[in-house]
Design a protein around this nucleic acid. Structure first.
Lengths: 211, 211
DNA sequence: TTTATTATTTAACGCTGTTCAATTTTAGAA
DNA sequence: TTCTAAAATTGAACAGCGTTAAATAATAAA
């Protein structure tokens, strides 16, 4: 029994070894720099062994992506935000999300752009009802519900707003990552303007524009 | 003289042949499906010859990307929009942009995500002053200037707003492309809501939220 | 200690981008 | 038209890729 457990622990350790090697290669050389053979060399095993712990390269990539993605999701659900006004929470949540994403750029972009079913399980956010089952989106959705508490905004519009804010933020993050040379000042200007200004325009502007 | 010109025309034709083969492979098998050897087979030449017309695969990719990207840019500058109110123009421009982008998905995503200098020459939009030198962004910027004509909104804020709207829209486009299975109905709901509602909230909400 | 199981490696396949030397085709001069 | 120089095109090779199958080494159970 106990020997069985040790074996399983060893398997987990080996998986962990492979994943962290992959992770470090990605952060050194980018996503395209990752190869099975490089992982093997880094962990000092033969390439083939990797296929005893993962089915293929994509499975490894999915795992690395999920790790990076989870870090970011937790930034949005951070408890430090409780107590403040919903608008303030919204602003901070947005900024936290952007900052967290910029810290793990390659994994984040990969996760968000992957069309693999495994990745979409976590990243998909546009389907009807997504705001109730996707943790990151749910935080945003709750925030909007608080903001619209005393208005007669219907649930569908709130969900759509949450979804659109989420993808908008993603667009900003991706562009900032790609245009790596815009400079820190301009980057901060954009992030501040977006989270402190644009996002509030979106939630407040809903009173002046009814379709 | 005339023979020289013919030669150069032939070179252009060969480049064209290579690029359109590449383009068709991409639209058949996606970006990852593209390989030099496949292009060679398609144009019925040996793989090596391609390197007489292009330096490497990336140069080919850059060319294909630019073509797709230009189609989309022209959708925003379309003249059919003249005469209408600036708000209406903004809504239509946004929708045109999204629709055009969804028609050439792979090239578009590739262009927007490429960190190559060549691609960034066209796609970069976040640097200070971008709205005056980037055609697609300039159309948006002009539109905002019209909308804010009689307010005392400073130029910097208008530029930032244009930039943020551009990247937001990009985020929506990318997510719709990645989440290919959300269904036509939900897709249209999102696009309509975004372009007819959210974008107007952004430009109109600026009066109610001053930082 | 033998046997069965599991972990790991070696070798190979077909693919990739790219380069170099050899070959064919073309252009201009004699 | 024939010879020569230049250009276009090819064939072969290199190093790297993901992946698989069979062979070997290490471990567990009997």
């Amino acid at each position: 029994m106990t020997i069985e457990k040790r074996r399983q622990r060893e398997i987990e350790e080996m998986k962990e070894l492979i994943l962290s090697a992959a992770s470090s290669i990605i952060s050194d050389e980018g996503l395209d720099g990752l190869s099975i053979r490089k992982i093997a060399k880094k962990i000092e095993y033969s390439p083939s062994i990797i296929y005893h712990y993962f089915n293929d390269k994509e499975e490894i990539l999915n795992n690395v992506m999920q790790r990076g993605y989870k870090k970011i999701v937790s930034a949005v659900s951070s408890k430090e935000l409780a107590g403040t006004s919903p608008e303030e929470r919204l602003v901070k949540m947005t900024k936290n999300y952007i900052m967290a994403a910029l810290k793990v750029p390659d994994e984040f972009i990969a996760a968000q752009l992957s069309k693999s079913e495994e990745a979409l399980k976590h990243t998909s956010s546009l389907f009807k009802g997504a705001s109730k089952v996707k943790p990151a989106l749910y935080s945003l959705y709750q925030c909007l519900q608080d903001i619209y508490k005393n208005t007669h905004m219907d649930e569908d519009s709130i969900e759509l707003t949450a979804q659109v804010i989420a993808v908008s933020t993603l667009g900003l993050i991706i562009k900032i990552m790609v245009e790596k040379d815009i400079g820190e000042e301009q980057r901060n200007r954009l992030i501040d303007f977006y989270s402190e200004d644009i996002v509030l325009r979106i939630v407040n502007g809903s009173r002046s524009s009814n379709k």
